[in-house]
């Protein structure tokens, strides 16, 4: 039988194309246009070529922010991924009220808006009225995230772990639930240890969702802005000025639209490259499994 081809389905994609054009492509084009010009407002632009890119690539400020960003992302991923897997492994497997309660409790931090998370931790960490700050101060630990860089880093890392580990837990839990009981029964017959069950059954079966979790956590943490900005404002000094905080300071605080546009394009390219690598690994590992 001859197969008929109907290309009209492409029209169904048009609304999405329009949406993407207005929300992503047109702003991106504008950023590219700004990155090669200087402006003092009133839609007056002066051509500077690739000067801003050179300036940003040699800027110590950008290097420092990038270094801080990489350290932040590495630390939170090193904590959140294993912790998320550990919590998922210890969640009840059989459906029931207790399981539902656990899932709701685990999902709660994900439902809180980012600026509220920042405000919660800003108050929580205060020595005068916050439970965390007051307790640490009471037991003799010198903790003041507004003056001490280590305390500020500790606060934003703990805050991110509290906010986002749930995502890894839920994804890992979904992966664990999809493993048929037969695998566990076979492992039991073979008298496999708990570690071997995890290493040879659970981890390989969770690989797909874990790669998604890693990709999402990488992208989110590399673009993080609201929570650390609300808690520390990038301080003390520039200790917690991550890439997006620095970018907003440059674009809105200093109104340096040209350098900020060049900065954001470099930032975008780095995220695009790493996300593409993760995506490719994910797709190819799926094909390998299939």
């Amino acid at each position: 039988m001859k197969k008929t081809q109907n290309q009209k389905a492409w029209f169904m994609v048009l609304p999405v194309l329009l949406l993407v054009a207005f929300s992503a492509i047109i702003p991106l084009m504008t950023v590219v246009n700004y990155s090669v010009q200087d402006t003092f407002g009133n839609n007056e632009f002066f051509w500077v070529g690739l000067e801003w890119f050179e300036e940003i690539l040699h800027s110590e400020r950008m290097h420092d922010a990038l270094r801080r960003q990489i350290i932040f992302t590495l630390i939170i991923m090193t904590i959140e991924i294993p912790l998320g897997i550990f919590v998922a492994l210890n969640m009840p497997k059989k459906s029931g009220l207790w399981t539902s309660l656990c899932l709701v409790l685990v999902a709660l931090p994900l439902l809180i808006p980012w600026n509220v998370v920042g405000t919660i931790w800003q108050i929580f960490g205060r020595v005068d009225i916050g439970l965390l700050g007051y307790t640490l101060d009471y037991i003799g630990i010198n903790y003041n995230y507004t003056q001490d860089a280590t305390a500020a880093w500790f606060t934003i890392i703990i805050m991110d772990v509290w906010h986002w580990t749930s995502l890894v837990v839920l994804l890992s839990y979904a992966g664990l639930k999809s493993i048929p009981d037969d695998y566990y029964q076979a492992a039991k017959i073979d008298q496999a240890s708990r570690w071997n069950v995890f290493r040879y059954i659970e981890l390989p079966k969770m690989k797909g969702v874990l790669l998604i979790a890693i990709l999402l956590r990488f992208m989110d943490s590399f673009m993080i802005y609201t929570e650390p900005f609300v808690v520390t404002g990038g301080g003390p000094g520039n200790a917690t000025t991550l890439l997006s905080i620095d970018l907003v300071k440059m674009a809105i605080g200093q109104f340096d639209l040209g350098p900020a546009a060049a900065f954001s394009l470099i930032y975008f390219l780095v995220i695009l490259l790493i996300s593409w690598v993760f995506y490719t690994v994910m797709i190819n590992s799926d094909k390998g499994n299939g």
Partner: peptide, 15 residues
């Protein structure tokens, strides 16, 4: 569309 700050080189780039 003057707010977009179009220039000939960037236009050539996107085209």
């Amino acid at each position: 569309l003057s707010w977009m700050g179009w220039t000939t080189p960037t236009m050539i780039f996107f085209v």
